[in-house]
Design a binder for these strands. Structure first.
Length: 273
DNA sequence: TTGTGTTTTATTGCCTCC
DNA sequence: GGAGGCAATAAAACACAA
């Protein structure tokens, strides 16, 4: 998307007659709109109202702003040819009011916009812009939060995976040692014949296949293979219990078992089209 | 004082919905 | 086609270190 589109109406743009340098820092005071008696720090940009038929807010001769910097304004009082203006920030009071309103509802109904504008001594367009920018800020913050929580989930899952891997190795060793115990060199012919694991590799001891019992698992081994055996493995009367495992509870409060859903997320619930 | 980074206000173009 | 939303962006305002 092309930038610099605001340039045409930029207050930095020198006014005709080369007066921009001087006028850039001054306003023609506005006697009209004030917020509850307090001074507004903003001008009346956006008073073109409908953005589809808008004209540049700046450089409209005779247009006036509701400046709060009275000293500056006094200096220029009487200046009828305002050709350049600066942005003015909203007052703390106005921002606070808008913030509260945003908390209640982050979307603006036309009536509410008008109402807010009236109450704050702003143009409806300014209120709309403020909400738009506020939503953008909120979205950014929310994405940062989501990024952090996903990172925490990843760490927890990785830790869980690693510990499962270790546990799996440990169990394999136990199985191996039990096998060695049972199949000691001095065992009888009957016992040797009865050894199921001496047959085809897919034969199993209990639920554990020979392959599971003997092969070493790589890092990408699916841990679910041992989950199915978590009910316990009985070998020679001993029970090797594999602890049931699931998704971890992360200590800092994040639960990784969540799924992203636009239904239950305050931000994504918004209908961004 | 000045350079630089951040935040805020506003514009522009495109998109979707009605 | 108009209204309103969003992303991208500009630029003023502000903060702050050197």
């Amino acid at each position: 998307m092309a930038g610099g589109r605001a340039g045409a109406s930029s207050p930095k743009m020198e006014a005709p007659g080369g007066t921009g340098g001087l006028l850039d820092s001054h306003w023609v005071p506005d006697s009209s709109t004030m917020f509850n008696g307090s001074n507004s720090t903003t001008d009346v940009e956006g008073q073109f109202g409908d953005r589809k038929t808008r004209s540049p807010a700046f450089f409209q001769a005779g247009e006036i702003g509701s400046a709060v910097h009275e000293e500056e304004d006094m200096e220029l009082e009487g200046c009828s040819q305002l050709l350049s203006r600066k942005k003015r920030r909203l007052s703390a009071h106005q921002v606070q009011f808008l913030e509260k309103s945003f908390e209640v509802e982050n979307r603006l109904e036309p009536e509410r916009k008008t109402e807010l504008a009236k109450e704050l001594g702003l143009q409806p367009r300014q209120v709309a812009i403020w909400f738009q920018n506020r939503r953008a800020r909120f979205k950014t913050k929310q994405m940062e939060k989501d990024y952090d929580s996903l990172g925490a989930c990843y760490d927890a899952l990785k830790a869980n995976y690693d510990s499962l891997l270790k546990e799996s190795e440990k169990l394999k060793h136990e199985v191996d040692s039990l096998k060695r115990k049972l199949l000691g060199d001095g065992c009888s012919e009957e016992t040797r014949k009865a050894r199921p694991w001496d047959g085809e590799p897919q034969e199993s001891i209990g639920h554990l296949t020979a392959e599971q019992g003997n092969s070493s698992q790589g890092p990408d081994h699916d841990s679910s293979e041992i989950e199915d055996d978590s009910s316990g493995l009985v070998v020679g009367g001993d029970s090797l219990l594999v602890a049931p495992h699931g998704l971890p509870k992360i200590e800092d409060g994040y639960d990784c078992s969540f799924e992203f859903s636009s239904e239950d997320h305050p931000f994504w619930n918004w209908s961004y089209n």
